[in-house]
């Protein structure tokens, strides 16, 4: 598939602060790509580099084959949905959505027709006369989406677009965004710190940490086959086993990752001292100390719940213990 966005050794340094530090990535056309990481990991700066709000201090950015550095935002055919939506408060919803077409010089009747169509697409038909201040958070989010999409961008950039919504609305919007992307077929690049969001929506995920990409792959790759302890911990909330323990139990000199749901109770296995038990609804999380390492286990409903402070036996399938490559 042709490349939509390509980063080659891209850095963005502010003095001594390396916001983005030597990032390589290749986002394919039509892909739903998530940039995942904790705050300050460089994911938002990377998005801003694509949009043109920031310029790289080193490296090359290609957008649909064209060199992008030095190009201002208004000369890039990508559009952004901002974290705070950034709707213009002095314009009504229709004029907000039609803004991109207005500055492009399109006639009023024509751009209002396009704006109405875009509002229909996000299920906000008939809201054109309202001011953004009269809308709910979810509605503003949709207006921001319509305002970006009405320009028919080749790639849509979304900066934590669901961060300000409550849980129920967020789950609904996740599905809507996903189906919107499928029907439009354009590249979506999505920044989030929520691993669940990234895994459930994206075709591919890039995990950021300290200005660098530590792993890129499909959600399954990221979840089941983390390459570094950071990914195992941040994305899968997996148990990370240090090399010292992996040498004893597996005979390899590398980090291991073990998902909490793969751990179960058995009669003869590893000694585990139970530190805490939390009821989660569908399952129960048990925090334990195994070989001197903190570990968690998820027990399905109906399983026998160990007492806090007791010592139990735990096992796992050899295949479930993933050996990390780095």
């Amino acid at each position: 598939m042709p490349s939509a966005i390509r980063f080659s050794g891209v850095s963005r340094h502010y003095g001594n602060v390396k916001a983005v530090d030597g990032v390589d990535m290749d986002i394919a056309e039509g892909e739903f790509f998530a940039m995942l990481g904790p705050s300050g990991s460089g994911k938002t700066t990377s998005l801003r580099l694509i949009a043109g709000f920031e310029q790289p201090t080193a490296g090359d950015i290609h957008i649909f084959g064209h060199v992008a550095q030095g190009l201002p935002p208004y000369k890039r055919n990508v559009n952004t949905v901002f974290q705070d939506y950034a709707l213009f408060p002095h314009l009504n919803v229709r004029d907000n959505v039609a803004y991109g077409l207005m500055v492009a010089g399109q006639a009023k009747a024509e751009r209002y027709r396009s704006a109405e169509r875009a509002l229909d697409m996000v299920a906000l038909g008939g809201y054109g006369d309202r001011k953004p201040s009269a809308l709910s958070g979810g509605q503003r989010q949709r207006v921001a989406l319509a305002r970006a999409l009405v320009n028919e961008p080749k790639a849509l950039l979304l900066d934590e677009p669901l961060g300000a919504l409550d849980l129920k609305l967020r789950e609904q919007m996740q599905e809507e965004l996903k189906s919107l992307q499928r029907s439009l077929g354009i590249t979506f690049i999505f920044v989030t710190h929520d691993q669940g969001e990234a895994l459930s929506m994206a075709d591919r995920v890039a995990v950021f940490n300290e200005g660098r990409i530590v792993q890129t792959g499909t959600p399954e790759d990221i979840y089941y086959r983390p390459e570094v302890p950071f990914v195992a911990d941040f994305v899968g909330s997996s148990n990370v086993l240090p090399p010292e323990i992996m040498r004893d139990i597996r005979g390899v000199d590398a980090y291991g990752a073990l998902r909490p749901e793969a751990v179960r109770r058995c009669d003869a296995g590893h000694d585990a001292w139970v530190r805490n038990v939390s009821f989660l609804g569908a399952s129960t999380r048990v925090s334990m100390q195994v070989h001197g390492v903190a570990m968690t286990m998820l027990l399905p409903r109906g399983a026998e719940i160990p007492a806090v402070g007791s010592t139990i036996q735990v096992c796992w399938q050899q295949d479930d213990l993933h050996v990390m490559s780095r």
């Binding site: 043109g52 208004y74 559009n79 213009f88 500055v103 970006a148």
Partner: peptide, 27 residues
């Protein structure tokens, strides 16, 4: 006036003069 407002205008294709005329000055 939040910075994102001006960035959004540029992002939507407005040249700096248009951003001044349609966003910064009204606000």
């Amino acid at each position: 006036v939040p910075l994102s407002m001006l960035e959004a205008s540029g992002d939507l294709g407005a040249r700096p003069a248009q951003t001044f005329r349609h966003v910064l000055l009204p606000l």
